[in-house]
């Protein structure tokens, strides 16, 4: 038996809107630790890792580890039917073939339940090694989204370079080139507007903007985004989900042949 009650149901709505276009089907894993997902996009270029820790739920019952295969588009459709202030409860029986999403309005005057069929998904779980990244950039998530959107009107790829000067985002296309440099800025009154650059070694990597733009659909989840880079390794773009977990996107770099 599984029963997970999330008071801030909008978090799950936002998570689904962030990943439904990147990943079609995925297994949600439920254990004592929390509710998690790891999935790749169909071309195996990007990997999504979601964790919602059990402590973040108002009620968390998971009698045994359970893996539930879901079509993310269908799950997003169902969660779209929940109000932004609704409490969302996820329920499933061990060995059952469906999952129920229950939505309660804050004053309990409306209760809805949506039942969705589960599916068998053969998924490959990848081990993500602990990595000391050469550069970690923390910046406002809206600023990062704006940069990715703007650059994608000029080119298809972004070269991200971190130096002592700051972080540079560059692209080139048929019509010309673009460079955007963000410098460290910790002097702002509001911590959510800060840009913080931790650099061990200068690093420079190229990525497909199409994927970066897809990741920025998670912008409503967090005011800040963390971009972690190391030479010849996938970049990690992380959005924290309140105090309860994270949504991380890993993207393989473009490599010179």
């Amino acid at each position: 038996m599984l029963e997970l009650r999330l008071v801030q149901g909008s978090l799950l709505k936002k998570v689904m809107e962030s990943i439904k276009d990147l990943v079609n089907d995925a297994n949600f894993d439920c254990s004592a630790t929390g509710f998690s997902l790891q999935a790749m996009d169909s071309s195996h270029v990007a990997l999504v890792s979601l964790l919602l820790r059990s402590e973040g739920f108002e009620h968390y019952r998971c009698d045994r580890n359970l893996s539930m295969g879901m079509n993310l588009g269908n799950m997003a459709k169902m969660l779209k039917c929940a109000g932004n202030d609704d409490i969302v409860t996820i329920k499933a029986d061990d060995g059952g073939d469906c999952v129920t999403f229950m939505f309660e309005s804050p004053n309990q005057d409306k209760i809805a339940d949506f039942e969705m069929k589960l599916m068998d998904i053969d998924s490959e779980h990848l081990g993500i090694p602990e990595t000391e990244y050469e550069a970690i950039v923390r910046m406002p998530s809206s600023e990062f989204a704006r940069i990715c959107k703007d650059l994608s009107t000029i080119g298809d790829t972004v070269l991200i370079s971190v130096t002592k000067e700051g972080v540079r985002f560059s692209t080139k296309g048929d019509i010309g080139t673009a460079n955007i440099v963000c410098r460290q800025n910790t002097s702002v009154d509001k911590p959510e507007e800060a840009t913080i650059i931790e650099m061990e070694t200068p690093v420079s990597l190229t990525f497909a903007l199409r994927y970066m733009n897809s990741f920025t659909k998670a912008t409503p989840l967090a005011t800040q985004v963390t971009v972690s880079l190391s030479s010849e390794l996938p970049v990690v773009v992380e959005y924290k989900i309140g105090e309860m977990g994270y949504l991380r996107f890993y993207l393989a770099p473009k490599i010179e042949e």
Binding site: M40, H44, V45, A46, L47, E124, H125, L126, G127, I128, P129, T157, T206, A208, L233, P234, Y250, L251, A252, P253, K254, I255, E256, E257
Partner: peptide, 14 residues
């Protein structure tokens, strides 16, 4: 043009 890497060449199956 640089070639798109595959995530499975960085992270191994467990």
């Amino acid at each position: 043009d640089p070639k798109q890497g595959n995530i499975m060449s960085f992270f191994k199956k467990v």
